[in-house]
Design a protein around this nucleic acid. Structure first.
Lengths: 226, 226
DNA sequence: TCACAACCTGACTCGCCAGTCATATTGAGT
DNA sequence: ACTCAATATGACTGGCGAGTCAGGTTGTGA
């Protein structure tokens, strides 16, 4: 993160306190859900008084949006670090796509509480009817779609990906990511689940998903060709 | 629906009143979301006193679950009517799958408020940590997966569908259903959306989605073969 | 040592609403 | 017409928790 450069100690401390509040809020929101989380508990967890939260965030809603924004930022960082777009030119496309999916599954598998928070609250806020909040999520959605679309367009240039509607293809990939992620989380949490043993690790999930995304569910016209 | 047979007038009236309450509750939950909906408004909308609701449902939560259960039941009925499993033997598989997807998109497009309610509340309840409520949704999920799995298994028998993990295939299809449905709803509500014009009707969506599901995103080895 | 600003604090307020219950209404049987 | 059981009603209560604010603390500069 950005260190002392051009920031007074005061400012750095303020940022650190804000960060501690966000971390505590993320925990409590993830455990209880937005509506059942109380500011008292968040303040307690962050070791501040409740009033202090209001020196940093103007409302409970703003705090939630800040938490979610921080999550997306962390996610983008992780993905973009582990998935250099330059590799697209050198490595085979299938490997690149595999790495991308694996990076996503691994990230959310390691942060499953945050994933669950995101699923719960993003749907609630997105359908809340408030256009500002819908736009907030739409922007993040667009950003992920753009990332995905860029990857696909490289595939098309290389002749590996069908030259069709990249929007639909990106949407298909992202939707499968979301649902397979859910099965993954609920399978290894030993919760109620109807998933077979194929879904026990990010690698297994990618192995099951990737061929379907690339070659579809239809039987191949001939059995052997590579 | 089941009519007078074996039901006294008393019982029929009671059911009708219950139904009116469910309908009002569905509207209010869809408009406001569960947490912001009040029993007063639901009672008002159903033209009953609030206390009367408690003669039919023991709590606000039970009311929500009843609303969702009713939705799923209506959905199953619609789908199973419009999509006779017997046709699987006679019609070409691709047509059958197309009909199935179209029936789903059309149903939820015509009932988009209910779809939004379902998305919002099912995620909230599913991740609530209450195993009973998670199981409620898991059962519905299983039922849809079973329906889908049956269709796929027919395809495998006919040699049209790849003989692979039907669970993964069913999951892929259902996840794409959910996300493409969302794009469909937000595109024709003229809301914030980044979808291209391909997503303007259930037919368009199916046309974009079906080839991807069947043949994948990879470029075909040769350009023409049907 | 004092003054002042920046910041922290948690008891309190106030609106909200799920759930209750004493009372009113209805209608079927006699 | 009267009774009784089933059902409806909505004013009320009790708990909750977001947001406030008067008073406390800290640290800096003079």
């Amino acid at each position: 993160m950005a260190l002392d450069t051009s920031l007074t100690r005061r400012e750095r401390e303020r940022l650190a306190r804000r960060e501690a509040m966000l971390e505590a809020a993320a925990q409590v929101f993830a455990e209880r859900g937005f509506d059942n989380a109380t500011l008292d508990e968040i303040a307690l967890r962050a070791e501040f008084g409740k009033g202090t939260l209001y020196n940093y965030f103007s409302s409970k809603d703003e705090l939630l949006l800040a938490v979610i924004d921080r999550m997306y930022t962390q996610f983008y960082t992780t993905i973009e670090e582990g998935f250099a777009i330059e590799r697209l030119s050198s490595a085979p496309f299938e490997t690149v796509l595999r790495d991308f999916l694996l990076a996503c599954f691994t990230y959310f598998n390691d942060n499953s509480h945050l994933y669950m928070l995101l699923m719960r609250e993003s749907h609630r806020l997105f359908f809340s009817g408030d256009p500002e909040q819908a736009a907030f999520f739409m922007n993040h959605h667009k950003r992920v779609m753009t990332l995905m679309g860029g990857v696909l367009r490289h595939g098309i240039e290389q002749g590996v990906i069908r030259d069709a509607d990249t929007h639909a293809m990106a949407l298909l990939i992202l939707s499968s990511l979301q649902h397979f992620q859910m099965e993954l989380i609920f399978t290894d949490d030993t919760e109620v689940s109807c998933a077979p043993s194929t879904f026990q690790s990010p690698e297994h999930v990618v192995d099951a998903l990737l061929p379907l995304l690339l070659h579809g569910t239809a039987a191949p016209p001939r059995p052997s060709s590579n």
